[in-house]
Computed example of a mutant assay.
Amino acid sequence: MRGARSFRCTAAPLLLVGGCTDAAVSEPPAAPGPPPAASSTSTAVAPALDVTVVVDGLDHPWDVVQAPDGTLLVDQRAGGFTAVLPDGVRDVAADLRDLFARGETGLMGLALDPGFAGNRRFYSCQGSRDGQIVVVGWTVAADWSAATRVVDPLVGGIPLNERSGRHGGCRLAFVPDGTLLVGTGDAADGSVPQDPRSLGGKVLRVDPATGEREVWTLGHRNVQGLAVRPGTGKVFAVEHGPDRDDEVNLLRPGGNYGWDPAGDGGYDSSVPMTDPAIPGAVAAVWSSGSPTLATSGAAFLDGDRWGGYDGLLLVALLKAEGVLALRLDDDGAVQEQFRLPELDRVHGRIRSLHQGTDGALYVTTDNGGGADRLLRVTPRS
Rank of each mutant, 00 (worst) to 15 (best):
G3M: 08
R8E: 14
R8H: 14
T10L: 14
V17I: 14
A24I: 07
S26M: 11
E27H: 11
A31Y: 06
P34Y: 02
P35C: 04
A38S: 15
S39Y: 01
T41G: 15
A46L: 15
P47W: 00
P47F: 02
D50F: 00
V51H: 13
V51Q: 10
V53R: 15
D56C: 11
L58P: 06
V65A: 13
P68V: 06
T71N: 04
L72E: 00
D75G: 09
T82F: 05
V84N: 01
V84L: 14
D87Y: 09
D91M: 05
D91A: 15
A93Q: 13
A94M: 05
L96E: 15
L99T: 00
E104I: 06
T105Y: 05
G115L: 08
A117K: 09
A117F: 04
G118L: 10
R121M: 14
Y123H: 04
Y123N: 01
C125M: 04
S128M: 05
R129H: 01
V134S: 07
V135G: 04
T139V: 15
A147M: 03
V150M: 09
V151E: 11
G156P: 06
G157A: 04
I158W: 07
I158S: 04
R166Y: 12
R166K: 13
G168K: 05
G169Y: 02
F174C: 11
P176C: 10
P176M: 08
D177N: 13
V182F: 06
G185E: 12
D186Y: 03
A187R: 09
A188W: 04
D189N: 15
D189F: 00
D195C: 07
P196L: 14
S198G: 05
V203E: 08
R205L: 02
T210F: 09
G211S: 04
G211M: 12
E212W: 02
V215G: 10
V215I: 11
W216G: 01
L218F: 12
H220I: 07
R221E: 00
Q224P: 04
Q224A: 06
Q224I: 09
V235R: 03
V238R: 09
E239F: 00
G241Y: 00
R244K: 13
D246R: 09
R252D: 06
G255M: 07
N256G: 03
N256R: 05
A262L: 15
D268F: 14
S269N: 07
M273V: 12
M273G: 03
D275G: 03
A281S: 09
V282P: 02
G297K: 01
G303Q: 01
G311T: 08
L312Y: 10
L313P: 03
A316Q: 04
L317H: 03
L317M: 15
E321S: 06
L324Y: 11
R327Q: 14
D329I: 01
D330W: 02
D331L: 10
V334H: 08
P341R: 13
G356C: 07
D358E: 15
N367L: 01
L374Y: 06
L374G: 02
L375C: 02
R376P: 08
V377L: 04
T378I: 10
T378C: 05
